[in-house]
Structure formats: C-alpha cells, structure tokens
C-alpha cells in the first residue's frame, strides 16, 4: 500500500455564489509527481491555496502530510515547499543571501544552512554567480534556484505553480531533472503547467474543469480513455466543454 500524503474529501471553496472549487476528492501518494492541470479559471489556484493552508475551505476537508487543513495549517506550512512562477526569490538579494534567508525562515540551523547552500550551489553550478543579485540571472537559472530553495528544508510535499513558464526548452528539461531527483528522494511533487509535454512527465494527472475534477489517471490511461494521440488532445477534449468564462 502506498503512503498517502495528500487526501481531500469534497474540498469546496465558494466566493459568494461562485463555486471556485467544487467538491474535489483525490489522493496523492508519497514520492509521486502529480500533475494538476486545467484551463485558466478552472479553480487550480484556489485549490492549491487551500492545500497549502493559505485559504480556508468553505466545506469538505483535507489532510496534507497527515495534518488537518483546518486545525494544523502551521504544521502543514512547515512540511511543504512552495514555488510559483511569479514570486519565488528576492531579486534584490544575492543567490547566497536568498538561500540563507529561506533556510532561516524554515528554521534550519546555521550549520545546516552552510552545508545546504554549498551543496546547492555545487549542484546548480552557480559558484561564479553566488554573490550576484538574483535579478541579474537568466530566468531559467532563477527558476532552478527557486525550486532548490523551495525544497531546502526537505519538505514532504512541494507545490509548483507553473514553474517553467517562459523558460527555454533546454533549461526546462534541466528543471525536470531536478524534479525527478527530488521525487527519487521521496519528496512528493504537486505541479501545474501549461506545457503538455510536461504533463507526460507526471506519474498521474488530474484535470480541473469548471471547478470540478473531471479526470484523474496516468497519462497513458488518459490517452486510452479519451482515444487521444497526445495529452494535448486529452486536454482539449476535456477543457472544450468548459462553461466558465471569467477568471
């Protein structure tokens, strides 16, 4: 039996009359790369915020890394990592300052921070750049660094919100190498993306349409189910039926 690290039960979030997330129920297993797909406005961000303990659900429940999202939001935050396309690092701090800062935020000891930052800089090949401002690095490097910082405290789960948007194809693959490596270490990856080839890299994929979870399976099975040649077609098939227009 696989260990379950994320378990939701009819998780729902309403904003007035608008049901952003409509009773979604699913499980994510330890060490899994879980793709969270959906068109704009399908409710991905809202769901992700609830799972990270940033937003309280209207109804339903969920446990993240064994902690209840209502009562133990603080414990959840200590056990997860988060990275988004928009904000992840301080552009006006250097590489090393960012690593130290986030290490400190997650309560690592000075010794741990020292070790981690040395490892990290080696791994990413940023030795020359460690004293440069993050703002001056190319986007791909920033994103790789941001990911490494997001898992600096060895969280159980890391949430990635469109981590590779706008990144060049080579760096995008290097980024996925990092994801695989983290996954092999037992870190569960919860990732959203607009690139359908990346959907293929996930162990399982869920598709949100109009706030509901319309599909959840391995990429191979999804293609079989929808009789599609690529994930692109699966996505198109599912998202085409969406009624929701506003974000």
């Amino acid at each position: 039996m696989k260990n379950v690290v994320i378990k939701t039960d009819k998780l729902t979030k309403k904003f007035g009359d608008f049901i952003a997330t409509d009773a979604i129920t699913f499980e994510v297993y330890e060490g899994e790369i879980f793709g969270f797909l959906g068109a704009n406005g399908a409710g991905k961000t809202t769901a992700m915020r609830m799972l990270c303990g940033l937003s309280i659900p209207t109804s339903g429940g969920a446990t993240i890394a064994g902690f209840d999202i209502y009562k133990e939001a603080e414990k959840i935050k200590a056990n997860i990592g988060y990275m988004s396309q928009k904000f992840s690092l301080y552009e006006d701090l250097t590489v090393i300052e960012n690593i130290r800062f986030f290490g400190g935020v997650y309560g690592l000891s000075d010794k741990e921070i020292k070790e981690k930052s040395d490892d990290l800089i080696d791994l990413l090949g940023l030795k020359e750049e460690s004293k440069k401002l993050v703002g001056s690095l190319p986007l791909g490097w920033k994103q790789k660094l941001a990911f490494s910082v997001a898992i600096i405290h060895d969280p159980k789960i890391v949430f990635l919100d469109e981590p590779t948007g706008g990144v060049d194809p080579v760096t995008r693959r290097q980024f996925w190498d990092l994801i695989y490596e983290a996954s092999n270490r037992g870190i569960t990856i919860f990732v959203t993306t607009h690139y359908m080839d990346e959907a293929e890299y996930c162990n399982r994929i869920s598709m949100m349409v109009d706030g509901e979870m319309k599909a959840l399976d391995t990429p191979t099975n999804l293609k079989k189910t929808y009789n599609a040649a690529s994930m692109d077609e699966v996505f198109f098939e599912l998202a085409r039926g969406a009624k929701r227009q506003a974000d």
């Binding site: 959906g38 704009n40 948007g165 359908m196 692109d232 198109f236 998202a239």
Partner: peptide, 10 residues
C-alpha cells in the same frame, strides 16, 4: 498566448 490555456490558444 502566454498564460493562456490550450483551448484559447488554438
């Protein structure tokens, strides 16, 4: 088309 989903992109 940046940040726009597949359906709208098509």
């Amino acid at each position: 088309t940046t940040g726009v989903d597949t359906v709208s992109r098509k």
